[in-house]
Design a protein around this nucleic acid. Structure first.
Length: 583
RNA sequence: GCCGAAUUAGUUCAAUGGUAGAACAAAGCCCUCGUAACGCUUAGAUGUAAGUUCGAUUCUUAUAUUCGGCACCA
């Protein structure tokens, strides 16, 4: 999908279109006041204060119509410049623009504004020459949006739109949006019986159906093997902990609002655990450790519960009950780089196996201004952040830095991916933590016999199995690779009376290693072929008289309309090769 | 949580202030078949709770869930 913000021309076009939108809104609602109207990857939006007026579905066509009308008038877009004091005077009746001007640097001697017909807006530009260039646009969606992105502020009305040079480009773009909806994991998950939801279970609590359970089990087996090979030790720990556990870890102070409420049982007060770090700290602390034993890597497929905001839950992607592919690595300070590198390499290895290419590494750092949000120890933070940065640079990893995205206990490396619908989400994460080991008074005995505090790396490769599965369904459009497909091979007899025995014996040979079905229903072959395809079964085998006579196998692959006939041995080899190559 | 919208059969959609209609799926029959939907028959639904009304699936309110954004995301 095209990134409009990164295209210089489209960026200009869309920015101008945002002004056109504002002008049209001003015509229809003279009381409207305007905040900002930036270009984004998907087009543009404008945040507007309409007083008590709320934009509804009926308004959008009216606004679009007014925009067309203004564009047709073809007024020139004229840039003018003024000083800060002049700007303050000019926009003195507009609190939103004043707010913007106030925040501009005194040294920024020129402030520009743009005028088109009867509409003027403060803006850095650049813009197109004339509104008549804005012909092929569409308003896409609208909603409330907090002023300055702060939930404590007033909610403004936001309208999103997009603009292109040609009608064709616009239509292509709109088609892409439709296509993206078709590969939304919520749709595929329903179509392929991966998961369900039920009001009686509750919001954000998906139920994994048999097909989904197969995918998840395969993912678990896969990553378990990888972790075992890397020296991870897996544990099982309870899904609850006492409130005191989270007070000890510090999570209670920072995330109490986002946990399910505590429950009192006898004299203990429990919460459903929102993460596993504290449990794993205790597992480490169960023993005395020598510097020689480190790193110690404790992993768990751990079910966690988070009281996610009601507006945030989404399919398998954002849930209130999830299973983390979690591990905590306890290392000596001198091992941080090496161990961190291994985690990054594991991420790259796994992404390669799944053919995941569209992702970004994000180095999530603390916001120094925000003392509330982060554990207060400048030295610790500086040390941790520079350590991560150094390792990333040494590894030659392409990443960007994000201020204010760190965990309260330390900086982290996140891997961001874009779902079919909605904003980017974090898949993998690796977090550096100097704090929790101290909180739990963890130690190891160093070479010289002294007690030292280990450093902890929190990491999750799949993130959660839930979100990873969601992502995988969208990446593959439901066409899962052979090794993950719930049903891998579907065998269809041409004639049940004559060919079913052969099908069943073939199934018998295959089912030790594969998930195989025989479709023996009394339906037409073409009907069963279609269904095999709709159910996205990777390999469909057709057995007729020819195959029975020659002791062969004819198969058709998902998405292909060619049939291949081979000996059974060749067929088994073909399957084996595909499993090995993770195709 | 905030702003807005939606909720009809297993699924996708239709309609109406007065008997809720179809397709696919399901069940039964028919067909016995060589690569994406044979035909016939049957059964199956207005999220929940109130209110207005002679009568509500339709109007109102509440609530739940879902969807589009915002905010949040250890």
């Amino acid at each position: 999908m095209i990134n409009i913000k990164e295209d210089e021309h489209l960026s200009k076009l869309n920015h101008s279109c945002a002004h056109l939108l504002a002008q049209a809104v001003k015509h229809l609602y003279p009381e409207a006041k305007f905040w900002v109207g930036p270009v984004i990857e998907e087009g543009f939006y404008y945040d507007i204060d309409l007083g008590d007026k709320v934009i509804t579905e009926e308004d959008i066509p009216l606004i679009e119509k007014e925009m067309k009308k203004i564009a047709k008038d073809g007024k020139r877009i004229i840039r003018r410049e003024l000083s800060k004091s002049e700007a303050l005077e000019m926009f003195k009746d507009d609190p939103y623009k004043l707010d913007l001007i106030e925040r501009m640097d005194e040294k920024e001697t020129v402030i520009s504004y743009y005028t088109q017909g009867d509409f003027t807006d403060l803006c850095r530009g650049p813009h197109v020459e004339s509104v008549k260039e804005l012909k092929h646009f569409k308003l896409l969606k609208f909603s409330g949006a907090y002023w300055k992105g702060d939930a404590k502020n007033k909610m403004l009305q936001r309208i999103y739109g997009v603009c292109f040079d040609t009608e064709e480009a616009l239509n292509n773009y709109l088609q892409e949006i439709e296509d993206a909806k078709a590969r939304d994991h919520r749709k595929i998950g329903k179509d392929l019986d991966i998961f369900m939801a039920h009001d009686l279970v509750g919001k954000g609590m998906p139920l994994w159906l048999p097909n989904g359970a197969i995918v998840r089990k395969e993912l678990e087996n896969y990553i378990y093997k990888k972790e075992q090979a890397l020296g991870y030790q897996h544990v099982y720990t309870p899904c609850v902990g006492t409130v005191d556990l989270y007070k000890t870890s510090g999570h209670w102070d920072h995330y109490k609002e986002n946990m399910f409420p505590s429950m009192k049982v006898d004299e203990e007060e429990f919460v459903l655990r929102p993460m596993n770090c504290p449990h794993h700290m205790l597992v480490y602390g169960n023993d005395i450790h020598s510097y020689r034993d480190l790193p110690i890597r404790i992993g768990e497929f751990a079910t966690d519960f988070r009281y996610e905001a009601s507006g945030a839950v989404k399919g398998l992607e954002r849930v209130r009950c999830m299973c983390q592919n979690d591990a905590h690595l306890f290392v000596r300070p001198d091992q941080i780089g090496e161990e961190f590198q291994k985690v990054v390499e594991l991420i790259l290895d796994v992404y390669h196996d799944f053919g995941i290419k569209n992702y970004k590494f994000r180095l999530s750092l603390r916001d120094k201004e925000d003392k509330e949000k982060y554990f207060d120890d400048d030295k610790m933070w500086d040390e941790a952040e520079s350590k991560l940065r150094q390792v990333l640079n040494d590894l030659g990893i392409d990443y960007y830095e994000a201020i204010g995205e760190a965990a309260f206990y330390g900086p982290k490396l996140d891997v961001e991916v874009k779902p079919a619908v909605g904003p980017e989400v974090t898949l993998s994460t690796c977090q550096l933590d100097f704090l929790l080991p101290r909180r739990f008074d963890l130690s190891y005995i160093d070479k010289d016999g002294s007690k030292q505090i280990p450093v902890v790396l929190h990491r999750a490769i799949f993130g959660t199995f839930d979100r990873f599965t969601a992502f995988l369904l969208e990446e593959t459009k439901g066409n899962l690779p052979l090794w993950l497909a719930p049903t891998q091979i579907n065998i269809i007899p041409v004639n049940n009376e004559y060919h079913l025995d052969y099908c069943n014996s073939l199934k018998h040979l295959l089912e030790a290693h594969y998930r195989v079905t025989v479709d023996a229903r009394e339906e037409k072959l073409s009907y069963k072929m279609r269904e095999s395809s709709v159910r996205k079964i990777p390999v469909t085998v057709i057995i007729g008289q020819k195959e029975v006579d020659e002791n062969t196998v004819s198969y058709r692959l998902l998405g292909s309309n060619e049939t291949t006939t081979v000996s059974k041995e060749e067929f088994f080899q073909y399957l084996e090769d595909r499993i090995q190559s993770k195709n």
